[in-house]
């Protein structure tokens, strides 16, 4: 029963309480690593792991952490988890960890993680905190993947490294008709614009989200 009762902890962050588009947290990584879809997906999985486990750990410790040093305790938990992710990536996907470079390390400073620790895990039981962590990282992942999809498709003409629009040098596929890749999509400003368009679409579909 508990699973169904708390299912809104998973579904809310996917839509009307999305961490990126509504809470406006974790924008920095959404701009930095979404030029390729693969990097977006790996980043999403990394955040899913860190936030899911981190929320549970913080929730378990919530009654014994003195509130004056809670930020330091939170940082240590995140840092430990991020180092695990970083080492796993270096061991099993070295090229990818090169692409993500410092941004894996910067998960520590990802506002979503500290935000959820502070706002949720410190005041809720482990199972609910776990669901909240999973829900928020899925909401984060959803935006990252949408942005990564459009940026890679329009910017490089590929998806996950595969040439879906043809080869720009041999002029096959749509390139034969004079189409060209949009180099602007690979630059960070267009990530911001893409996130902006998602926010625009989302708010125009749901009047309750419009702020004055």
């Amino acid at each position: 029963m508990g699973l169904f009762k708390d299912s809104n902890l998973i579904t809310d962050p996917l839509a009307d309480n999305n961490p990126i588009t509504i809470q406006v947290l974790g924008i920095c990584s959404a701009l930095a690593i979404t030029a390729e879809l693969e990097a977006s997906i790996v980043m999403s999985i990394a955040v899913l792991f860190v936030l899911g486990v981190g929320n549970v750990v913080i929730s378990l410790m919530r009654n014994i952490i003195p509130s004056k040093i809670r930020i330091i305790v939170q940082l240590i938990v995140v840092a430990t988890l991020v180092i695990i992710v970083d080492l796993v990536l270096k061991a099993f996907a070295y090229q990818l960890s090169k692409t993500l470079s410092v941004f894996v390390g910067l998960i520590i400073t990802n506002c979503i993680i500290m935000g959820r620790f502070e706002a949720f895990a410190l005041a809720n039981r482990p199972w609910r905190s776990f669901l909240d962590g999973i829900g928020n990282s899925l909401g984060y992942a959803m935006i990252l993947i949408i942005v990564g999809f459009f940026r890679e498709l329009l910017g490089s003409g590929t998806l996950l490294g595969m040439e879906v629009l043809g080869n720009p040098i041999d002029k096959t596929g749509v390139y034969a008709f004079g189409y060209e890749n949009n180099g602007f999509m690979l630059l960070a400003p267009m990530a911001l614009v893409t996130v902006g368009i998602i926010i625009w679409v989302q708010r125009s579909r749901n009047e309750a989200l419009i702020e004055d």
Partner: peptide
């Protein structure tokens, strides 16, 4: 500016 950054070769 959009043209300039998107299609610099043109």
């Amino acid at each position: 500016a959009f043209l300039f950054f998107a299609y610099p070769t043109w």
